[in-house]
């Protein structure tokens, strides 16, 4: 039976690898559709046609697209992300520190939102139909229904404008003490936590409610099991797959959320870097940032599927 699980997991990883290739291809081509000739943009208005032609040659811009794609892939494998058009720094150097900042933001949000959402989701399912359950459900549906920037603006209004507890903007460089740290991360993390948790609560609640209506939970009831035992011993172990799946899927919403949140709070992360790069049409930078986001997203989705496979008792 063990080999069955292994096979499924390997198959899933194989699919992820193929998907990654397709995604890289898509990212590369979408960005190479950027209007305007890259060489002439780089050299500016005053450039001579000869200089432009030379640069095109040097950048392999005359080669067929598929060849450029392969060259780009080879570069990626060697850790060469290319050079930024805007300020001629290596993309890897530009991304490095920013990526760490984004990871920190995502990490803190995860640590906060996962326990919060699981507790709320599971308890809401246990107390299905109660005032508590209805409140949680309505709040989460409300948060899902509004754009992230609205959650962010509401948070700013509440914490920065009315209560004046927190600054509206973040600046990582000013972090000297713990209180500074809290003040800097608070607004982005609060916003992201709201956005991620709402999704996770709904999916967790649905997963637990589904297992609570199975015949084996009814059987446990007819054995005289308490409500707690029914949920903890019988429903939860079987809802684990769907719940972990829900967690991973919700965390993949971080990718979208982070783009808005970093922009709105001026947080120096990789998403902000990318939005700026789009504004300046900095092709290599956009490609690399997009790739990193896709990687993270793909990783989470694949992780969700792998966990779902492994938690299936029938494959044990």
């Amino acid at each position: 039976m063990k080999s069955g699980v292994l096979n499924l997991v390997l198959k899933r990883l194989g699919i992820a690898a193929v998907t990654l290739l397709i995604v890289l291809f898509a990212v590369f081509f979408a960005t190479s559709m950027l209007p305007g000739d890259t060489a002439s943009i780089l050299l500016g208005q005053a450039a001579t046609p000869e200089a432009v032609a030379g640069l095109r040659e040097a950048m392999h811009l005359n080669d067929p697209a598929i060849l450029r794609f392969l060259l780009w892939l080879v570069g990626l494998v060697h850790g060469d992300l290319g050079t930024s058009y805007a300020n001629e720094m290596p993309v890897a150097a530009l991304i490095g520190g920013r990526l760490v900042n984004t990871m920190k933001l995502a990490g803190i949000t995860t640590l906060l939102s996962v326990p919060l959402a699981l507790t709320l989701g599971i308890t809401a399912a246990m107390l299905r139909g109660s005032v508590y359950d209805r409140t949680v459900t309505i709040l989460s549906i409300g948060i899902i229904s509004v754009p992230e920037f609205m959650v962010a603006t509401l948070a700013v209004l509440l914490f920065a404008v009315y209560l004046k507890w927190l600054p509206a903007l973040s600046s990582v460089n000013e972090a000297h003490s713990l209180t500074d740290l809290v003040r800097i991360y608070a607004m982005p993390v609060i916003t992201l936590t709201f956005v991620i948790s709402a999704q996770m609560i709904r999916m967790t609640r649905a997963a637990v409610i589904e297992t609570l209506s199975t015949p084996y939970v009814e059987m446990a009831l007819l054995k005289g099991a308490s409500r707690g035992r029914m949920v903890l011993r019988h429903a939860l172990p079987n809802a684990l797959g769907p719940i972990v799946n829900a967690v991973a899927l919700s965390l993949s919403y971080l990718v979208g959320g982070v783009i808005i949140v970093e922009t709105i709070f001026n947080y120096p992360g990789i998403a902000k870097l990318m939005v700026d790069a789009v504004a300046t049409r900095d092709l290599p930078l956009i490609q690399s940032c997009a790739m990193i986001f896709c990687l993270g997203y793909l990783f989470l989705i694949t992780a969700a599927d792998v966990v779902a496979i492994m938690s299936n008792p029938r494959l044990r």
């Binding site: 193929v18 998907t19 979408a30 979208g256 808005i260 049409r281 896709c294 997203y297």
Partner: peptide
């Protein structure tokens, strides 16, 4: 299914961002 699933693994905001950057 394989192709559309791959499409699905591009985050939506990112896709929008890149396309808008490319074609306005």
């Amino acid at each position: 299914s394989r192709f559309l699933d791959a499409m699905n693994s591009i985050p939506s905001k990112l896709f929008g961002l890149v396309v808008v950057a490319a074609v306005g």
